[in-house]
């Protein structure tokens, strides 16, 4: 069995977000890039499946659409344990564009993992689009996944409970938190071996993005919070009625 894990290259989650002067692009100056946290969990689950006793998983390939500077992120995925990386050499213009690029080779895999969203643009779209383009099964919001012969047993979080599905391969699983406990820390040996693992660079196919960014806005700064003591109910009512004027 061959597994493909889609790897988003996203700013470190502690990054202070800034935009360019006309607010049409993210200012990537000085940003440290990481593997999208959901994708990192997906990779961890893929590794667990490969390492399980009697596993039929032969290879794990990671892929992204991005320029050369995203190779650090792919090499970290190789250091964690993926066998091969593929980079489509293009700017990830939008979800449809990215899915189109990935669709060229994603069909060769039995199981494709996509994170439920990326921690940068929260697009929530590449996985679903790619499954449609490939014409294969897809399940979203997957928080548990096991392989049983030719079936994949999938757990999903649903409102107020959970659901277990049996799905046949090939499958694209859009995974969320819970798919693996914690992302793996790459071992020294893995970091060393990442140097020698293949990282294939593909030229993009012709495709047009379906969306264009008009503008970005920062969220309004939160107003200062005021704490009212538990024995100050009168004060609270006064503030809500006369100052905030919501009563």
């Amino acid at each position: 069995m061959k597994i493909l894990v889609l790897i988003g290259n996203v700013p470190d989650t502690t990054t202070k977000i800034k935009f360019n002067a006309d607010k049409t692009a993210f200012d990537a100056n000085g940003v440290q890039w990481i593997i999208n946290p959901w994708d990192e969990l997906a990779l961890t689950r893929a590794m667990e499946l490969k390492e399980a006793p009697g596993s039929t998983v032969e290879t794990i390939v990671v892929a992204n659409v991005g320029r050369a500077e995203t190779e650090g992120t792919l090499r970290k995925a190789l250091a964690i344990g993926a066998d091969k990386a593929i980079r489509v050499d293009a700017d990830p213009l939008d979800a449809a564009y990215v899915a189109t690029q990935l669709a060229r080779f994603a069909g060769e895999f039995d199981l494709v993992f996509a994170g439920i969203e990326a921690s940068d643009y929260n697009g929530n779209a590449v996985g679903g689009m790619l499954a449609e383009m490939l014409g294969i099964n897809s399940v979203s919001a997957v928080s548990g996944l096991n392989i049983e012969g030719s079936q994949v047993i999938v757990n999903r979080e649903i409102d107020g409970g959970s659901q277990t599905l049996g799905v046949s391969l090939p499958l694209l699983a859009i995974v969320q938190k819970g798919i693996a406990k914690e992302p793996r820390i790459p071992a020294m040996r893995g970091i060393m071996m990442a140097r020698t693992k293949p990282l294939e660079v593909l030229q993009p196919v012709d495709a047009q993005p379906l969306t264009a960014i008009r503008t970005f806005e920062m969220p309004q700064p939160k107003a200062a919070c005021r704490k009212i003591g538990e024995d100050q109910a009168k004060e609270l009512i006064y503030l809500l009625r006369d100052e905030a004027k919501v009563l």
């Binding site: 650090g72 090499r75 970290k76 250091a79 820390i185 790459p186 071992a187 020294m188 970091i191 060393m192 990442a194 140097r195």
Partner: peptide, 8 residues
Amino acid sequence: EQIMIQQA
């Protein structure tokens, strides 16, 4: 690699 080790 050095950055990867630092992060690890």
